[in-house]
């Protein structure tokens, strides 16, 4: 009798927990709904209607994006960030995979030393990079150029990439050397035809994580760029928002929404890689 009641009690507890959890999750994602709703309103409508009231004309979002673009260069920022995130992460994957190939599979002196040198780029807070980069970029004419931004974004992504590639390559060392000796391939052919195709999984994972890191960056866009053409999208968005922002709330929300679309698409398309990513990021395996 006692046993049965406790089972029923437990089932009840479980439903209660589930209900609370659903309530919590709903509240958790409500800000996202508010962003979407407010981005479709006129400033007046936003001020007068309830926060969760439906917008009168959803197409208003296009007007808001257009005026946000005019105000802070969101449109230009989207294009620049797309270039930085795509080219920067591809360049980092290439530079890191070839360096890791040399470290893990070719005959070089002090491979671990070279690895540590490159990997040490992950350990410092970004505040250590800001002033010298700003000074250097000013003096060599890279300040406020797309090339300068690309160079930096590639560099900042390399250390983590080399860490992942090195671990992966050490694991597949035997197979590669065997395949290469059967082929009689040169070291470059081995890299291009054997190593890279075998490393598709880590390369894709790194592309996704580095793409979204570069896409989401605000700080280096703030320090190394100033014009509408060069500034990445997050730095532009920051000009609209916050205590010192100059945009209306619908403009801010429309900007926030547009700036998030690429990473949201990536997330839903490659959800597994993202989740795996944070585990890998921390587990160091």
């Amino acid at each position: 009798m006692v046993e049965r009641r406790s089972i029923r009690q437990r089932a009840l507890d479980r439903y209660l927990v589930l209900a609370l959890l659903c309530l919590f999750t709903t509240a958790w994602v409500t800000p996202l709904a508010i962003v979407a709703l407010s981005s479709m309103k006129t400033p007046r409508e936003q001020a007068q209607s309830g926060i969760l009231a439906l917008p009168a004309n959803a197409a208003m979002i296009l007007d808001n994006i257009a005026s946000a673009s005019e105000l802070a260069g969101i449109g230009n920022g989207l294009l620049s960030s797309l270039i930085y995130a795509f080219v920067g992460s591809v360049a980092a994957v290439i530079a890191a995979s070839s360096a890791a190939y040399s470290i893990a599979m070719l005959k070089i002196r002090f491979p671990f030393f070279w690895f540590l040198i490159i990997y040490s780029g992950t350990i410092f807070p970004f505040q250590m990079y800001l002033m010298p980069l700003f000074g250097l970029y000013q003096s060599v004419g890279l300040y406020d150029t797309r090339f300068g931004m690309l160079l930096f974004y590639s560099a900042i992504a390399v250390p983590f990439c080399i860490f992942v590639f090195r671990n992966y390559f050490i694991g597949m060392q035997g197979e590669v050397i065997e395949a290469a000796s059967l082929d009689g391939a040169s070291s470059f052919q081995t890299y291009l035809r054997i190593v890279l195709p075998m490393a598709k999984a880590p390369a894709l994972f790194l592309f996704v994580t580095q793409f979204s890191w570069i896409w989401n960056d605000f700080l280096f866009g703030q320090v190394l760029a100033k014009s509408d053409d060069v500034r990445p999208v997050m730095t532009s968005l920051a000009m609209l928002s916050g205590a010192y922002g100059k945009g209306t709330i619908p403009q801010q929300m429309a900007g926030a929404l547009t700036a998030s679309i690429p990473t949201l698409i990536l997330f839903f398309a490659l959800q597994k890689h993202f989740m795996q990513g944070i585990v890998l990021n921390t587990a160091g395996e």
Binding site: D217, M234, S241
Partner: peptide, 10 residues
């Protein structure tokens, strides 16, 4: 998944 900047705007 959102950028910190987007979170700050929201």
């Amino acid at each position: 998944i959102l950028s910190t900047t987007v979170v700050a705007a929201i």
